[in-house]
Amino acid sequence: MTLLNPSPNPWILSRSLVIILAFVGCAKEEPLGPDLSGLYGELELLTAFSNNSPNGVHFEANEKVEFSADFNLEVDYTLSLTGQSSGAKYSISGKGANLSDVSWGGDCDDVFFGPMEWVHCVLEFDDHPQSTQLDSVFVWEQPDLSFKGVLLTSFEDPSAFSLTSGDFTEYLETVNNAPDAVEGSTYMTGFGSGPATWFGALRITMDPATLSNITVADSFLNLHLRSEFEGSATVIKVFEDSNDDGIINSGDDEVFTTKVPIAADGQWQRMNLPLSDLSLDLSGNNVAVNGGLLDLDNILRLDITISQVGTADGTFGFDADYIILTPDEPF
């Protein structure tokens, strides 16, 4: 086809037609967008909200609470569990027409659920606030969640840790038979005064052989901390035996550290610290040996020191409980 002789070229027209028809849309099988029934339908419970532990759950026997309910719609739901004496909380969210996959093995958000405790279970629906359902379950024993990782200490066993005081330490001890412990009945408390940054430390001896599932890139150090002193912080220090001589020597072995402020709200908080946040400490006499990379096979000790955010003259400190390393995800 030339411009001066513009008779339609059959080849061009036919190809254009094929291309155009390729785009022409057809009806699709699946409805577009989110399910309207889930958003705006009237929710009905086809079977009532309940659980499989009417006589309570024995976590020591590896029991789990399995919840059940059937709905007429696919709905977004949140199951919130609250311990009536411990104040522990845990929530499970999901979407579906039933709760067949929802179970609870004692997990908690901050403090652990206590033994001999009623737990209130509230089932709420994001788009149907008027359809909230209630249930409860009795917990006989506190759950053992150490299977989630490598438990460093819960302070119940005095041989698993040591406490080191300094000139500015005022108090550094364990509190036994404490009903307000995160888990069990013992936790550590320590504080000090003065314009210092080291008020004592919790020391935990590490055995690299127990860290086979732990990697620097994907693992977390999980601590439960509580403070009432404004400006308090903890400095986490990991000591390597970099030269493999069996002891930690300043100037010969690498130290990795990070500093974390602690909110002074008097409430237990769970802190999930990625191991990748630890950086090589070159302060003082410390050195870089293996390229500044944390090597879990050489770890000998973990220090959790009582410190402050700045260098002010004041009182600083915190309580600590249940310290655990977890692979792949936070505790």
């Binding site: 409805p31 577009l32 967008g33 309207l36 029934s37």
Partner: peptide, 8 residues
């Protein structure tokens, strides 16, 4: 509707 929206 060429394709249903939100429902069948």
């Amino acid at each position: 509707d060429l394709t249903p929206e939100g429902v069948s």
